[in-house]
Design a protein around this nucleic acid. Sequence first.
DNA 1: TGTAAAAACTGACAATTATCATATTATAAA
DNA 2: TTTATAATATGATAATTGTCAGTTTTTACA
Lengths: 228, 228
Amino acid sequence: MSKCEQCIVRQLNSLKSLNKDELIRISSCKTSKTIKKGEVIFEEGDHINGVFCISDGICKVSKMSSNGRDQIIHLAKKGAILGERSLISDEAANLKATAINDMEVCFIPREEIIKDLEKNPGFSMNVLKDLARSLKNVDNVLVDMAQKTVKQRLAEMLLNLEIKFGHNSENVLNIHLSREDIANIIGTATESAIRLLSEFKKEKIILLKGKNISLIDTAKLKKIAQGF
Amino acid sequence: MSKCEQCIVRQLNSLKSLNKDELIRISSCKTSKTIKKGEVIFEEGDHINGVFCISDGICKVSKMSSNGRDQIIHLAKKGAILGERSLISDEAANLKATAINDMEVCFIPREEIIKDLEKNPGFSMNVLKDLARSLKNVDNVLVDMAQKTVKQRLAEMLLNLEIKFGHNSENVLNIHLSREDIANIIGTATESAIRLLSEFKKEKIILLKGKNISLIDTAKLKKIAQGF
DNA sequence: TGTAAAAACTGACAATTATCATATTATAAA
DNA sequence: TTTATAATATGATAATTGTCAGTTTTTACA
């Protein structure tokens, strides 16, 4: 099993502020696992008792609404840490995490993280910053969800996917989402999402080939996202 | 000016974990001010350089959407701290805070809070818990906003107002919101909010007298909120 | 107290979005 | 490959919500 001290992934998150001794201690008690596409990492209500550090792959973090539909709150990629909030509140998970493609994650038990939070102010400051960043982000998503039309939100989401995941040499976004996932990100019915994607395609704003999406006219997308 | 050491409000928030010396230091550099109903405490983009501790009154915390409508993210009452997120991220405010009735707030400069965050692990743990609580809350609001109808959201909001602000001896909610504010909380047009409130009134679920709202049939409201 | 301005309300209609039904295409398993 | 299954797509329609226009009521203040 690879060692935390040598893992470059931790440079991407709050673990980067841990010193060598702390990393060695964490390394000795962490567990790595492979998660297949579609598998659930944790569910709402689970007592996860630790955090997951994503070393590879992408997962969706979602919550079931009382009317039975799943809302995707965000997408987590390599370097992201899952379960931080539950760990701090010492509560069961409020969200569900599901792999969108094959993943590699490390699990670090709760006590180890708590130790470092208490002893290493730099680390707890970084965790604070992580939460602050998440909070700002959800606030912004909330405003869009409340005030923008489905079409605006779809345009916005496509632009965000481009920023977060980029595209390959053929301009295809480096993330493959089902139409249902797309609908669950922007908070609409699957049919509506499909219809709007087709509309964007017809207007040559994007290119669609199965789950491959290419943004052609990002300027137009930006305009749509802002309501023009 | 009253002293932090003797202030009972701090028992309601993360400042409760500060010791006497820390409180005396903060007390000596804090400033208190009265804010009139309708006045803005800070705006999006302001460099607030500190946090506000609400000792009395209620304010709305909102963000302007790119289509020009204000979305209220949450309501803050006595004991709440404003500006924590911006302080931690060391960024300009992402949100705007506006008094919805006359308020008393104390302002504590950034450096003082930072000092305590670095030195007092109990305090930084409490701030972490504050942010974690906020994060969980917005996540839940986001799901409702994305998946529920306006009617469901209105019912939900009324129940939340009851929980957070309670009611007086005549069963009138202890918070007075304009119809526009109500609309901006649930993310709809003012007219739609008014129409649904009238509908609830006609069905004897609530009582309306100007800005006075009384919940009559909370069981029914709960059913509506869950989509029945 | 009177009056102007703002807030609350109502109606009519248009636009958006959801739902249901069904067809087509892609994917995975035998 | 063949076939079953799931995912995607499209049409028709209903329900929800927004917009605009105008009225009534309330509030603030001279």
